[in-house]
């Protein structure tokens, strides 16, 4: 696969002296969904704005589809679609006109069939003649997406696409992202909803205080940092850990009616088999058994805390 985006040593500081990006390196492969995770103020939006040409970089180079974003800005920007975080739309204009405008602005010839397709895909077709101000917040967000897609980008940035959006629309949005991926569009989304990254991303980058802390395959990330817990629910509660189980790393939970065993998924021996036989040897009767893998959220919180510690 070829690289659609390559960022090298990207720095951005503001006149106030604030360093929003402290040397970011990032490569994104064509066709993948990349999620950029980070707390508020981490530099997610600054990174996107700089790549898209909304703010000037202080140092570093960015290439989109092999084109330098400054030297070959026309070629680079033609490939990019941007859905901003804020709902920035001209309130008095009709939906279809703002979408047509976006296509024209990117220098693409009129193509009403395509615009219709995009609006239909986003369930906006019956609203095409409505003024933007008449739309709900979720609909406006769809209009932003339609505008970004109107010029057929190869690389789509979604900056917090589902911030403040209800569950249904969020699922819709994820479906749209999935369809775009099928069409070969590379998607970079920022979010602070971990579940979102977990649900749709192929790779994840964690950014905090202007630095990329890590970039990794989602599954690998979860595997590498994932701790698993086994919760052993008991028929009769215990007050302390029985003698025969003292060698295990067990904790009493749920007022003694459960034991929690933490283990590493990647370890050669998880010790589960032996633990379970020792549990029955200790005379404990099981009511239920469940295992839980730490979510990206927990991984993420750990990472950011480590960084700030």
């Amino acid at each position: 696969m070829d690289q659609i985006l390559s960022v090298e040593g990207l720095k951005k500081s503001y006149a106030s002296g604030f360093e929003a990006l402290k040397g970011v390196d990032l490569n994104v492969e064509s066709g993948e969904i990349f999620a950029l995770l980070g707390p508020n103020g981490a530099g997610k939006t600054t990174l996107i704005s700089t790549i898209c040409g909304i703010t000037n970089a202080t140092a570093g180079t960015v290439r989109v589809g092999g084109h330098d974003i400054y030297a070959e800005f026309r070629a680079a920007r033609s490939l990019i679609g941007l859905v901003p975080q804020e709902i920035n739309l001209e309130p008095f204009e009709k939906v279809i006109n703002t979408v047509r405008f976006s296509r024209g602005l990117f220098g693409k010839p009129k193509n009403d069939a395509l615009i219709e397709q995009i609006l239909r895909d986003l369930s906006l077709w019956d609203k095409k003649d409505s003024r933007i101000m008449e739309l709900s917040g979720g609909m406006k967000r769809r209009v932003l997406i339609a505008k970004a897609l109107s010029h057929e980008p190869r690389l789509l940035f979604l900056d917090e696409p589902t911030a403040g959006v209800d569950v249904e629309l969020r699922k819709d949005m994820w479906n749209v992202v999935g369809r775009l991926k099928e069409q070969g569009v590379t998607i970079i989304l920022t979010t602070h909803y971990i579940e979102e990254a977990e649900a749709i991303a192929d790779r994840i980058g964690v950014i905090s205080k202007g630095q990329l802390l890590l970039v990794e395959d989602k599954a690998k990330l979860m595997e590498r940092l994932g701790q698993k817990q086994m919760i052993i629910e008991l028929q009769a509660p215990v007050t302390e850990i029985p003698e025969g189980l003292a060698s295990y790393d067990l904790q009493i939970a749920q007022n003694g009616s459960a034991l929690v065993y933490s283990y590493d998924v990647k370890a050669d021996r998880t010790g589960i088999t032996k633990l379970l036989s020792d549990v029955s040897r200790a005379g404990l009767v099981l009511r239920d058994l469940q295992t839980k893998q730490s979510s990206l959220e927990e991984i993420f919180v750990n990472l950011v805390q480590e960084e700030t510690a």
């Binding site: 898209c52 040409g53 909304i54 800005f73 920007r77 941007l82 920035n88 976006s102 602005l105």
Partner: peptide
């Protein structure tokens, strides 16, 4: 805020 589009356009 719609200026973002002008600035990011080719």
């Amino acid at each position: 805020g719609t200026i973002y589009e002008l600035l990011s356009a080719p």
